[in-house]
Structure formats: structure tokens, C-alpha cells
Amino acid sequence: MEIASWHETGAVPVTILQVKGDLTANEPLESRARAAVLDGARDIVLDLSHVPYISSAGLRAIHIIYMLLRDADPDDGVAATQGIARGTYKSPHLKLVRPSKNGQKALSTAGYDMFLDLFDNVPTAVASYR
């Protein structure tokens, strides 16, 4: 698995983490995300367009990134708790780009698609931040 990262600025600064290869381990992606958050990243786009397969460890990495960003925004924690129970919440800080068919199935089975927005490309995901 390879992970590339860069920054783009739309309405807010956004960190892009692009994964290439099967997402079968949580540590590499989790470490990159932790470093980005420690450097001040508050909005991350996770580009999964080159990820054919996501394992349970990959799902764990995505969840950890979600929690890192949610914990960095106290207001989001309250909104998440109430909104997830109602089915009305989408993370304002983590967006996913073009998971494969198998990746979408894993995300859907785990329920992640209920609170994470999926986009067709990075520019559209970056533009969605306000």
C-alpha cells in the first residue's frame, strides 16, 4: 500500500490522503492521518479510487481518522451523537472519494456510508467543505 498526501485549499484548507493498493492494514494510514492532524489538519479527503479491497483493518483505519477529526472539533462530537441516532449526520471533516465496488460494499456493510459522504473525485470533495 502506498499513501500520498498533499494540501488543497477551497473554502478551507484540506489535506488529501490518496491510498494506492489494498487497504489491509490500519497502521500506515492511521499514522499518516495522525501526523496530519498533529500538523493542524482539520479536514481530510481520503481518496480510495486506487483501492481495490478494504479489509476490516482498513475500515478500522477509516474509523480512527473519523474519530481523530471528530475529537478535534468539540461541536462535531455533539452533532454526531445526536445526528447518527437520527440518521441525519454526515461528517463535516472526513470525505471519501470513489471507493471500488468492493470497497463500497465494505463501507456499506459496516454502516460507514451512513455518516461519511462519498464523492466521484477529489475536486468535488474539496469543494464540499464550507
Rank of each mutant, 00 (worst) to 15 (best):
D75L: 13
S31F: 13
A127V: 03
A72T: 00
G87K: 01
V51S: 05
A4E: 03
H93L: 13
P28L: 14
D75M: 12
P74A: 12
A41F: 06
Q82A: 15
G40S: 04
I65C: 05
G10R: 05
N102S: 13
K95F: 14
A35K: 08
A110M: 11
N26T: 07
A57R: 00
D120K: 12
D73I: 03
G103N: 04
K105A: 15
V37H: 09
G10C: 05
R42L: 15
H93T: 13
V126Y: 05
V37A: 13
I65T: 05
D22G: 10
E8A: 04
A72I: 02
L107W: 06
P28H: 15
V122C: 13
P13D: 10
R130F: 10
L107H: 02
M114I: 06
A127S: 08
A4W: 09
A127I: 07
G58W: 00
P74D: 12
D73K: 06
E8V: 00
A33H: 04
A72Q: 03
M114R: 04
T81P: 03
A80K: 03
T88V: 10
Y112K: 00
D71W: 11
P99E: 15
V19R: 01
R32H: 04
L118I: 14
W6K: 08
P74V: 12
A106D: 00
S91R: 03
V45S: 05
S56E: 05
L59M: 07
P74Q: 07
L38M: 10
Q18E: 13
F119L: 09
H93R: 11
D76E: 12
T109P: 00
L17F: 11
L23V: 04
T81W: 10
G40R: 14
A110P: 01
Y66H: 10
L118M: 09
I3Y: 05
R60Q: 09
W6G: 12
A127H: 06
R98G: 11
L23I: 07
R42M: 15
L38K: 07
N26L: 07
E2Q: 13
H63D: 06
I54S: 03
I44T: 11
L38C: 09
R34Q: 06
L69K: 12
I84H: 00
A61N: 02
G58C: 04
V51F: 08
V19L: 11
S108N: 10
A125V: 10
A36F: 11
A41T: 02
L59W: 05
S91T: 01
Y112M: 15
V78S: 08
E2G: 08
R70W: 03
A85I: 06
V78F: 15
A25M: 07
G10L: 01
A72G: 14
R70K: 08
L17Y: 08
A61S: 11
G40L: 15
K105F: 14
R60C: 13
G103M: 07
V45M: 09
A33I: 03
P123V: 08
V122R: 04
E8F: 02
R130I: 08
K20V: 14
S49I: 08
L68W: 02
L29P: 01
A57E: 10
S108T: 11
K101W: 06
F115I: 13
R86Y: 12
L107R: 01
S108A: 12
I54P: 00
L48H: 01
Y89N: 06
E27I: 08
V51T: 14
K90Y: 13
G103T: 09
L69G: 12
M1A: 12
M67P: 00
D22A: 15
Q104K: 15
K95H: 12
R60I: 11
